[in-house]
Amino acid sequence: MKEFFLENEEFTKKLGQKIGSSLFPGAVVCLNGDLGAGKTTMTKSIAQMLGIEEDITSPTFTIVNEYMDGNIPLYHFDVYRIGSSEEMYEIGFEEYIDSKGICIIEWSNIIEDILPKDRLELLITYENEGRMARLTPYGDIYEKIVEEVEI
């Protein structure tokens, strides 16, 4: 585990860019934390590092947005309104997770029971005048990513 204090949005973007530059086809990034803490900003920064030029928006009502114009496909989930993990199977969650794209899942704690064993979890919470970001790796490849992240 590694923690970073994010003074402002620029620090959030820098952290997202560092993470994004280390991701690989099939990577899974789980974003949790306070409402409005920067999960979508983090996703935008990761997408930028993947060469995605489309405007990244939170897929609150569609559950998943697909971005195919970058170096690696990006599947951006927002499961805030999911009632149960079973609903994820209806949208083909397994196909996304087993693909060569990168999956970013906002509010992943809601579907924790169906997340892959190997993944990177990022918790963003408000702290003082900024935010605290905690990276928790699950699996060797994610441990290496976390070790190398500095902002």
Rank of each mutant, 00 (worst) to 15 (best):
N109V: 13
D113Q: 14
A47Y: 07
I82E: 05
N65S: 08
E90N: 13
D118M: 08
S108Q: 09
K117Y: 14
E106W: 01
R119F: 06
E66A: 08
A47W: 07
C103E: 07
I63D: 08
W107G: 04
D78C: 07
D118H: 03
I97T: 09
M88Q: 09
M49G: 03
Y75V: 11
I46L: 05
K117L: 13
I52A: 14
T125R: 15
T40F: 05
A47M: 04
E87Y: 04
P116L: 14
C103I: 11
S58F: 03
F61N: 04
I102H: 12
S45Q: 10
E66C: 12
E66I: 09
T57H: 07
D78T: 00
I72W: 09
I105E: 14
Y80K: 04
I63K: 03
I82T: 05
E121W: 12
L74M: 06
I124F: 10
F77H: 06
E94M: 12
L74C: 02
G83I: 03
T60H: 04
T62Q: 01
R119D: 06
E54D: 11
A47Q: 05
L74H: 04
E54F: 02
E87G: 06
S108M: 10
P59D: 02
L122T: 12
T62G: 05
G70Y: 02
T40D: 08
T40H: 06
E86A: 14
G83A: 09
I82P: 01
E54I: 00
Y80C: 10
E106Q: 09
M88S: 05
I110F: 10
F77Y: 07
